[in-house]
């Protein structure tokens, strides 16, 4: 970005506008689609507060909060994944690597299976489980500095250990397994304004912080030694980014379940379009992530209507092949 008139800058800005339109379009489609058809005119009436009671109930109390949760989750997971792939300098990094999924999974399933009486506390409990696991992984990986390779391997080790705990619980309490499946797959059914209000501050604060520090992540990508020689406090920067991405992912996962896949593939999709520069990668990942989750949730409600599929299933079933297609089409060097 040499100056504002730069062609390159212009091209990226146009892309960001396109993705913004995509995200908004997906929200509109999500509000419009469902078992009960509400016309666009009536949807607007709901927003201005002059609709019928039924329309109001469907749009304002059911579809809108659910769509907002989907939007925030998609944004948070995508930005979280983009941060981690950057600081780890590893294309396979995702919120799973810093133990968010295994930590939230372990805590959530522990609560649902062993202490079902407290299942109201699922969200804070899963959130704390995710954050605590990130801290443990970081501390174990620390040896005069948290080397990205050591972080990744530590994450794999800790996640495997917690996975063993999850599986043991499911084997010892087979009668309670059905209550945790929804949480493990990840779904948006019955997400309300309460969920949206819990998630929103984390999602917006984390995303905003990521946008503001995108230049620092670019510096960190040059490698620790070069970053240090440019005057960046490498360890501090890395721990701040890990904290941001852990909060983003933990808040999402604790509300909708283990939807980790979005955090892995969305940044790659975004990179195919705008390249690795985080000043563009973060906004495009955020918009693409929110648009994709909202769209996948719309499909999840539509495909087998009136039966609803979990959004995690749709995301993986459609996102996986589409991702592979893009990977084959674009040269692997742009990843």
């Amino acid at each position: 970005m040499m100056n504002i008139k730069d062609k390159y800058f212009k091209k990226k800005s146009i892309l960001i506008i396109i993705f913004f339109a995509f995200a908004l379009g997906s929200v509109a489609l999500s509000l419009y689609t469902g078992s009960v058809k509400v016309s666009p005119g009536n949807i607007i009436k709901v927003m201005t507060g002059e609709a019928s009671k039924l329309d109001y109930q469907i749009i304002w109390n059911i579809r809108l909060p659910r769509t907002i949760v989907a939007f925030l989750v998609g944004m948070s997971l995508a930005v979280s994944g983009a941060i981690l792939q950057g600081i780890m300098r590893n294309p396979l990094a995702s919120p799973n690597i810093i133990g968010v999924s295994s930590g939230a999974g372990f805590a959530g399933i522990l609560l649902l299976i062993i202490f079902p009486a407290f299942s109201d506390l699922l969200i804070p409990f899963a959130f704390l489980g995710a954050m605590a696991t990130t801290v443990v992984i970081y501390l174990i990986a620390w040896r005069g500095g948290a080397d990205p390779h050591r972080l990744i391997l530590t994450g794999v080790g800790v996640s495997a250990f917690l996975g063993a705990g999850i599986q043991s619980m499911m084997i010892f309490f087979p009668d309670r397994v059905h209550s945790v499946i929804g949480f493990m797959v990840g779904g948006l059914a019955a997400r309300s304004w309460d969920h949206a209000f819990v998630l929103a501050p984390y999602a917006f604060a984390g995303t905003l912080l990521a946008f503001l520090s995108s230049g620092r992540l670019n510096i960190l990508m040059m490698g620790d030694e070069t970053a240090r020689s440019l005057g960046l406090n490498v360890e501090l920067t890395r721990v701040i980014f890990i904290a941001i991405s852990s909060v983003l992912a933990a808040a999402s996962v604790s509300i909708v379940g283990l939807l980790g896949f979005a955090g892995l593939i969305v940044p790659h999709l975004a990179r195919i379009f705008v390249g690795p520069d985080h000043r563009y990668l973060f906004p495009v990942s955020a918009l693409l992530g929110s648009g994709l989750i909202v769209t996948c949730d719309t499909l999840a409600r539509m495909i087998l209507d009136p039966v609803e599929l979990p959004v995690g299933v749709i995301m993986a079933a459609l996102g996986g092949p589409f991702f592979l297609y893009l990977l084959r089409r674009k040269s692997a060097s742009s990843m």
Binding site: M222, T226, L232
Partner: peptide, 28 residues
């Protein structure tokens, strides 16, 4: 970093960065 710069043997740069992006990092 305004007094001395150090260029290690290898630089881990993501391949999609442009020449001017890399050089601009020097201004950090």
């Amino acid at each position: 970093a305004r007094e001395l710069t150090y260029m290690p043997q290898v630089l881990a740069a993501y391949p999609g960065f442009l020449v001017k992006d890399i050089v601009a990092c020097g201004r950090f």
